[in-house]
């Protein structure tokens, strides 16, 4: 079983399912998609009102929308904070992850020795370290950025390493037959070959980073979307709470779409 058949393959399949919303979508399909959305949201609204479900259990979509729009100026700085944590932590983690993957795959012996530790880093929820990080670095940005980097880095690394390990001896021989240097072989053969798997790693890493950022914000400190979740729920402001949940799912979808589009542009040769 190759690694591509695992996480990467499944994400690839998932990415393909998104492509059903491509140019081939007819007007009828668009109408059906919109109609379904209206029926689901409208039906939920009607049902919650009909059964007089209290807002603190599940607020109707209209109340969530009103709260989201009304309180958005209050939520916005928290969104900004979460984005700073996510983007900087992800950039650090992904940068180190890709770099280490590129280096380590050149030395199979070292790779075998390091592999178990990488696996531990990948499988341990880095959220577990957040209380410790807060103890050491306080309630500012640092512990959260470190947690995000620790969560996304190994994900990026393990997938990138799979990419860099895909050596095609004939393609390297081709480059060598034209006198390519080791560096040229890396940039013109190994790196483009690894790119599809690197993108998969970046996407998974970014989503793990988002989870960790929000989780870390829930653990402590007075800022971020995660902090809003705990605050709103403790104040039983459920419409606002669900408004924040909507923003988070929007962020998740955004990550997915961004990497889908990058993959479509730069790695479409693979499919």
């Amino acid at each position: 079983m190759s690694d591509e058949g695992g996480v990467g393959g499944r994400v690839g399949k998932g990415l393909q399912s998104l492509s059903t919303f491509g140019s081939g979508t007819t007007r009828l399909e668009i109408a059906a998609i919109i109609a379904t959305a209206v029926i689901v949201i409208g039906g939920l609204e009607a049902a919650l009102r009909w059964f007089e479900v209290p807002h603190y259990i599940l607020p109707p979509p209209s109340a969530i929308a009103v709260a989201l729009v009304g309180d958005f100026p209050l939520i916005l700085p928290h969104l900004g904070h979460t984005l700073v944590v996510l983007l900087s932590g992800f950039a650090i983690g992904a940068g180190i992850g890709i770099f280490l993957a590129a280096i380590i795959t050149q030395f199979p012996f070292a790779e075998k020795i390091i592999a178990p530790y990488i696996l531990i880093l990948v499988t341990t929820p880095m959220l577990a370290l957040v209380p410790l990080l807060i103890l050491r670095f306080g309630f500012g940005y640092e512990p959260r950025i470190i947690a995000v980097a620790l969560a996304s880095g190994p994900m990026v690394m393990i997938n990138s390493a799979t990419g860099f390990r895909r050596v095609d001896a004939n393609k390297i021989a081709l480059a060598r037959s034209y006198g390519a240097s080791v560096l040229q072989i890396f940039w013109k053969i190994r790196a483009p070959m690894a790119l599809p798997m690197i993108l998969v790693g970046l996407m998974i890493g970014a989503i793990f980073g988002l989870l960790t950022a929000v989780g870390a914000e829930m653990v402590g400190g007075g800022f971020g979307l995660g902090n809003r979740l705990t605050t709103y729920s403790s104040m039983i402001q459920m419409p606002q709470f669900f408004g924040v949940v909507l923003i988070l799912s929007f962020l998740g979808i955004l990550i997915y779409v961004i990497f889908f589009l990058i993959g479509k542009k730069w790695a479409s040769w693979e499919t």
Partner: peptide, 30 residues
Amino acid sequence: PRPEIGLVFQEANLLPWRNLLGNILFPFEV
């Protein structure tokens, strides 16, 4: 490897991430 020698492989051995012209220009790039 010497520039006077050209090599054609068993499979076409094109680089799949480059278009046809990109593949032909690859030796010049290197």
